[in-house]
């Protein structure tokens, strides 16, 4: 198997504001979100980062997407460092999270062309990909409708399509089905499997066990910013369901605390 992503000793600490200190019930000014995280991902697989809310999954993915810089450690995507060569890395990935929004004012047609230009996609390829993607997700009928007037499900499908305008080798999805209606969620998960079949690598974060079981080839379990277990799904589960195995690990780390 060809390694496409290598993560080594990735760490990130945030300074808490007074408000955040109150919310977190802590007197500490700094919080370690990701602590010396290492893992690999291979071409043509779906790798899932599984963990509870606040475990550090989103922070990890944001570092991989070069939106934030790690305090220490590094990650290499297809040989390019997220720390020293972030622009090249951004050209190789498609990143999708609910935090990323599209401008309401523009139409899907305009946005596809605009992001294609930013990614350096030539016009002919852009037109070809647009036709295929819009047709695949049923956006073609709404191509000239402003984003503001699209349904929530259609906006989410459009966000997915826009994140893939440049046909990236690695797709990073933060909670891919979060907030989606059942139909859109199914469309997305089916599409992730199609992408894997095409040889793309997908890194996703989730806290939904069924999603991991259905989609992921390999999984990394993160609790409190640390990688507790990482490997093929069957190996990590060790004969149990992923849900039971996760709670076993969680109790081990937290000492029975839930």
């Amino acid at each position: 198997m060809e390694e496409i992503l290598k993560v080594e000793g990735l760490s990130k600490t945030f300074t808490l504001s007074r408000k955040q200190q109150k919310i977190e019930h802590t007197a500490a000014r700094r919080k370690t979100a990701v602590d010396n995280l290492s893992f690999d991902a291979y071409r043509g697989e779906i790798f899932g980062l599984l963990g509870p809310n606040g475990a550090g999954k989103t922070t990890t993915l944001r570092m991989l997407a070069t939106l934030i810089r790690p305090d220490s450690g590094d990650a290499w995507l297809d040989g390019c460092s997220v720390v020293s060569d972030p622009e090249t890395v951004r050209g190789k990935i498609g990143f999708l999270t609910s935090e990323l929004k599209l401008e309401d004012f523009f139409t899907p047609n305009y946005l596809f062309d605009f992001f294609s230009r930013l990614h350096g996609v030539d016009e002919a390829t852009c037109a070809q990909r647009k036709a295929a993607m819009f047709s695949r997700f049923g956006i073609d009928r709404f191509a000239e409708v402003k984003v503001a007037n699209l349904s929530t499900g259609m906006k989410q499908k459009l966000s997915l399509v826009i994140s893939l305008v440049h046909d990236p080798e690695v797709i990073i999805f933060d909670e891919p089905t979060n907030g989606l209606d059942v139909l859109t969620a199914r469309t997305v998960t089916d599409y992730l499997q199609e992408l894997r079949a095409e040889g793309k690598t997908i890194i996703l974060s989730t806290h939904i066990f069924s999603l991991v079981e259905r989609l992921c080839d390999r999984v990394g379990v993160i609790i409190d910013g640390r990688m507790i277990a990482c490997g093929p799904l069957a190996e990590v589960c060790d004969g149990l369901s992923i849900e039971d195995r996760f709670f076993e690990m969680y109790k081990e780390v937290k000492g029975g605390e839930e």
């Binding site: 951004r90 990935i93 935090e99 990323l100 929004k101 992001f115 990614h119 350096g120």
Partner: peptide, 17 residues
């Protein structure tokens, strides 16, 4: 406005300098 609407992050994950 782009920060508030979350659209700046969409721009920042592109390879644009």
């Amino acid at each position: 406005g782009e920060k508030e609407r979350g659209t700046i992050a969409t721009l920042l994950v592109t390879p644009m300098r």
